[in-house]
Design a protein around this nucleic acid. Structure first.
Length: 870
DNA sequence: AGGGATGGCGCGCCA
DNA sequence: CGCCATCCCT
């Protein structure tokens, strides 16, 4: 077993590892084959009810498999059944299966479902988790191989930014000119690509901090090591480095993981790809050394002559040229016959929505090249949505290029199925109000709130709905919303706990050294900081030294002394006291609870409540360390599941979920597709936004309501908005432009009833609906009442001017092209003024849409109602 | 040292 | 608008 003892035996983490102590089951033997044959003929329960493609995906256990699973085609079912199949046919122990997901939610769900399939016999799957949580697990075992101790802390984005800011200042740079946040983003993207400071492109390195980008990145990494800390990227990068530098350790994992499953493969980034590759690739034996035995492959799993993908990785020019030679280093033991590592990746290129996080759709598009002989199985039979919903989604996504190309179909078709509804509202307030009413309507029709969800593009949209639902008394839950752990009081409390568990955590120290106020101001902290830096010791240690000297004033010295004594005491208690008790004690004795009790502000009681909740949630964990790790990785606080409530979440966090009724508000240019996606990602960015739209629509089983508004408040200013281009890309056959049925909450009731407009020709102008007209009518009152002035300055008025209601047409497929369009009151070349974009010249006119070259804002497309001639 | 006022900037999505 | 950082005052 070589030097493997390094990790496995010294550190008390050898969980459920039968494979390392007992010989693995004889999967390749005659008995096993007989067993497998028996199982195949018997068709165990869990296989029944799968369609042929799904069955294929479950039963093709050997060799590389790519499952292209469209939305709602039973992807999770395939994954879990596949695992159940592996387990119940005795091909591997739970601990020999590596199953990677992207979200904790997905991991949790898979665990549950496997449990149901296999029964209670299987005690969890130790290696089922997110890339990051598995990364942590690996790192805790082998921390010393990358220069960490196994009790390292995981820093969140906030910590990272503060740390970088310090470094920027330490370099004598202006932290205004070089924002820490921006650099944190750069580091993150380098890490997503698997690049350490020496590998980043020269251009990138120069782009920041007067050309000191590389130095700064290196300094950051060093600082992390000193702090015994990791950022999220390190959770992937360190294991990669560790495996490359320690082929013997890697080999242990090769022997261990017989089956690798990857969920959402389209979302893997380069670092994750490298990580997977290392684990799935058994190094090819060097000729003459160990070839004969390793090629023998005595377990019989392989079909003779079939290419073994794991030996045929392509040369990777971009990331790590040295890897292949290093990974196939000489220390690999060849005594045991090698077994194939069977990798199965599941994904959907149409649902790749994490490009901004470094995901490479290319990974999935390239799968067959990476794994020669790979079997590709397409799942296209949709079990979730109605024909209209599928039709709308398919037609929309067909506007993307560079797809592998799947066509979802369903066999369930019902004449009663509703089309996808498109609604217009005047502003986001009305949007929230109308959706609230629609929800209440459904509720009256005996629909559960649990079956409805509102999916927003950006989290700031959520608040409007929350406000509205609070007034309505409508239950809702925010999924992945303002994260529990991000709250001030939770972060403070966590900092205390971190520092107790990890005295070197200077970020935690600085956070709480003067919270509550102890008279340890900036001066004292700086002295401490300098002292610690000059001796290269953590600040808490520095504090305990410095109180022996007279470097700080007596008052501060006393305060520091108290802090140091407190922490020393808590550290000793860590071993003896139950962690929840200790946590309470820490918050009491530090005066932190008292601080909030003394606080008379409105939110103080809530904060105290949150602290209690924090302690409560610690009960589920074995130790304070375990809890800290959980919080660092699992950002979502548990919500009470039994309540019937509407879910509100972002489109991103909705991936993988399904609801009977889906509301998709905010389909406006600039918000969805998001302006920044367009600016930074160009066409690729637009396509990713479109995939996001596709994900949104395909979450719906029965009803899908899309909304757009003409006015939205952005940065506190009301801005006029244009309907999203994605609306134009919906097929008219499956879409109905809805009339708003409900009356208005506070005002405007009566007089604008729907009936008067019922006979309006829907094709005349689809957005000329009663709701729309009413909204316009509204505008004149509402503008005066609600959008008046702000601290004396005129707010942006929405640009209707004096010329009355506009005709709004979306040309394209959704709405019949308006042939009766009145000639535009503008001409190409006209000089015009727009409230937001300023002056510009008209470059083109399409109906009432103007393309304008603005002097300052560049080229934009706006509705003619929002500009006036100058 | 601490608190209040003021001014700048931002609201994209995640582990 | 709302958060934050910073400034300035006590």
């Amino acid at each position: 077993m070589g030097r493997m003892s390094k990790g496995f035996d010294d550190i008390p983490f050898f969980d459920e590892e039968p494979a390392l102590r007992k010989p693995p089951p004889a999967t390749g033997g005659i008995a096993a084959r007989a067993m497998a044959a028996r199982d195949r003929s018997k068709r165990p329960d869990y296989l029944s009810g799968l369609n042929p493609e799904q069955t294929d995906a479950v039963e093709t256990l050997e060799g590389p498999v790519l499952v292209l699973a469209g939305a709602g085609t039973g992807k999770t079912r395939v994954l879990t059944t596949r695992i159940a199949h592996i387990l119940s046919t005795g091909r591997a122990y739970p601990s020999q299966i590596l199953a990677v997901t992207f979200t904790n939610k997905a991991a949790r769900e898979m665990k549950e479902r496997i449990g149901v399939l296999v029964g209670h016999a299987v005690e969890g799957m130790p290696w089922l988790g997110t890339f990051h949580s598995i990364g942590v697990k690996l790192l805790r075992r082998h921390a010393e191989l990358v220069g960490l101790r196994s009790d390292f802390t995981i820093l969140d984005t906030d910590d990272v930014v503060r740390l970088i800011k310090q470094l920027i200042q330490a370099e004598g740079l202006d932290d205004k000119r070089w924002p820490a946040k921006q650099f944190a983003g750069m580091i993150d993207s380098w890490k997503n690509k698997g690049l350490d400071p020496s590998q980043i492109p020269e251009g990138d390195a120069r782009a920041f901090a007067n050309g000191k980008g590389r130095e700064l990145y290196a300094a950051y990494q060093n600082r992390l090591l000193t702090l015994n800390a990791c950022d999220f990227g390190d959770l992937l990068l360190h294991p990669i480095r560790m495996f490359r530098a320690n082929p013997d350790v890697l080999k242990d994992y090769h022997d261990k993981f017989r089956y690798i499953l990857v969920d959402e493969y389209q979302d893997t980034n380069t670092a994750q790809y490298m990580w997977l590759r290392l684990l799935a690739q058994r190094p090819q034996a060097k000729s003459g050394e160990i070839s004969s035995s390793s090629n023998k492959n005595g377990d019989g799993i392989n079909v003779p002559g079939e290419a073994r993908a794991s030996e045929r990785w392509p040369d990777d020019v971009s990331s790590a040229p040295a890897e292949r030679s290093r990974a196939s280093g000489d220390s690999v033991s060849a005594k045991k016959p090698t077994q194939q590592i069977n990798i199965c990746c599941v994904g959907d290129d149409d649902q790749s929505i994490y490009g901004w996080r470094g995901a490479e759709v290319d990974n999935i598009l390239r799968f067959e090249k990476d794994f020669p002989g790979a079997k590709v199985i397409k799942l296209e039979r949709n079990y979730r949505s109605t024909e209209h919903i599928l039709g709308a989604a398919s037609h929309l996504i067909a506007h993307n290029e560079g797809r592998l190309g799947k066509t979802l179909f369903t066999e369930r078709s019902n004449p009663d199925d509703e089309k996808v509804h498109v609604h217009a509202a005047w502003d986001s307030e009305e949007e929230a109000r109308a959706i609230g009413e629609e929800i209440e309507q459904l509720q009256r029709g005996k629909h559960n709130l649990n079956d409805m969800a509102i999916l927003v593009r950006a989290s700031f949209q959520m608040r409007e709905f929350e406000d509205r639902f609070v007034t309505l008394g409508l239950n809702y839950r925010v999924i992945g919303g303002p994260r529990f752990y991000e709250r001030l009081e939770i972060r403070d409390a966590m900092a205390y706990f971190r520092l107790v568990c990890q005295p070197a955590d200077d970020l935690a120290f600085e956070r709480i050294v003067n919270t509550p106020k102890r008279g340890l101001g900036e001066t004292t902290v700086r002295t401490l900081h300098d002292y610690a830096r000059s001796r290269d010791i953590p600040m808490l240690a520095a504090a305990s030294e410095i109180i022996e000297t007279d470097e700080v004033k007596p008052k501060a010295r006393k305060a520091l002394f108290d802090v140091v004594t407190d922490f020393r005491r808590w550290q000793t208690l860590l071993e003896t006291t139950p962690h929840t008790e200790l946590a309470e004690q820490i918050l009491e004795e530090s005066g932190y609870t008292a601080m909030w009790q003394a606080d008379k502000s409105a939110e103080a009681p809530g904060r105290l409540e949150n602290l209690k909740e924090l302690i409560r949630s610690m009960e589920a964990f074995e130790s304070m360390r375990g809890f800290l790790e959980h919080v660092a990785l699992v950002m979502d606080a548990e919500q009470n599941e039994d309540m019937d409530a509407v879910s509100i979440m972002t489109l991103h966090s909705a991936k993988g979920l399904e609801f009977d009724t889906i509301f998709l508000p905010g389909w406006e240019e600039g918000l969805f597709p998001h302006q920044r996606a367009l600016d930074e990602g160009g066409r690729a960015g637009l396509e990713e936004e479109r995939r996001l739209a596709y994900v949104g629509i395909t979450r719906a089983k029965r009803r899908c309501h899309i909304w757009f508004v003409s006015n939205r408040r952005i940065h506190g200013l009301w801005q006029s908005t244009m309907p999203s281009r994605f609306l134009d890309e919906l097929p008219i056959d499956h879409v109905e432009v809805a009339e708003q049925e409900a009356s208005y909450g506070g005002y405007g009731r009566g007089g604008y009833g729907q009936s008067r407009f019922d006979k309006a020709d829907p094709f005349e102008n689809s957005y000329q609906t009663p709701g729309w007209k009413r909204a316009q009518q509204h505008r004149s009152d509402a503008t005066r009442d609600n959008w008046g002035t702000r601290s004396g300055h005129a707010v942006e008025r929405i640009g209707y001017g004096e010329s009355g209601p506009r005709t709004r047409t979306i040309d394209g497929e959704l709405v019949a092209k308006s042939t009766t369009a009145e000639p535009s009151r503008f001409q190409v070349g006209d000089r015009v003024f727009h409230l937001k974009f300023g002056n510009g010249n008209i470059a083109a006119i399409e109906g009432n849409k103007l393309t304008i070259d603005f002097d300052r804002a560049g080229q934009k497309r706006v509705l003619d109602g929002f500009v006036e001639r100058v």
